[in-house]
């Protein structure tokens, strides 16, 4: 039996919930036990948003054991295997879920909180944030998903899918591109989303 935890973090309106739901459905299709939660109280009001996706993956001959397979919908501290941050300041917020084994993808994009406007606070740039997180895990990557989404699609709506493409290309998630593709089609997503995931995967391969 294996557990796998994905945390998507960002700001309301960035598509955090959408990519979380996609991952939950894709896991269910694979026959995983899927649990998760969303923190979305302020999702439409530029508040912080999270989606936690947790899989229990049983071996072929393994039976469901409630003592080992019951999951909290919230990821325990340090247990996130994959963290996708669609906004870089939000990566700092979720640091307690990250351990030395986690993979962290940070979109090079910032949305200034109003508090920063009112009090003239400066956000650390994305690179500084990435370096801070490297104190916890070496597996931190900055992705220019917003710039790519803007260039390829004319707006920022595909950032979540591009980030997912990068995560898939890392080859550490228990999901393949095909798993996601089939699920996206089932959920009635447009072809642009699939194209965005492919672009993300290429982005990753280009960097390696």
């Amino acid at each position: 039996m294996k557990k796998y935890n994905i945390l998507v973090a960002g700001v309301g309106g960035q598509g955090v919930i959408t990519v979380g739901r996609l991952l939950k459905r894709a896991g269910l299709r694979k026959g995983y036990i899927v649990v998760g939660t969303e923190t979305r109280g302020a999702s439409q009001r530029e508040g912080p948003v999270d989606s936690a996706v947790r899989y229990v993956i049983l071996e072929d001959d393994e039976k469901f054991d409630p003592r080992r397979c019951t999951l909290s919908p919230i990821i325990p501290m340090g247990d996130a295997d994959m963290v996708m941050c669609l906004e870089s300041n939000e990566a700092l917020r979720v640091s307690e879920y990250i351990s030395s084994k986690s993979y962290v993808l940070i979109n090079d994009y910032q949305i200034l909180p109003t508090r920063a406007r009112s009090f003239g606070l400066k956000m650390p740039p994305t690179d500084t944030i990435a370096n801070l997180l490297k104190k916890i895990t070496p597996n931190v990557r900055v992705v220019n998903a917003s710039a790519v989404s803007e260039r390829e699609f004319g707006d920022l709506t595909k950032v979540n899918m591009i980030m997912l493409g990068v995560a898939l290309a890392l080859g550490v998630m228990p999901l393949s591109f095909e798993d996601i593709e089939v699920t996206l089609r089932e959920m009635g997503f447009s072809e642009d989303n699939i194209r965005a995931i492919r672009i993300g995967m290429k982005l990753m391969e280009g960097e390696v």
């Binding site: 340090g78 109003t114 801070l132």
Partner: peptide, 26 residues
């Protein structure tokens, strides 16, 4: 099994740079 003190210490250090994001009027 987890060293909570260490996780917390590192996370607190990183999180101290976070600017809280208040929800705002649309």
């Amino acid at each position: 099994k987890k060293n909570y003190d260490e996780i917390r210490k590192l996370a607190t250090e990183v999180k101290s740079k976070y600017i809280p994001r208040d929800p705002i009027f649309c």
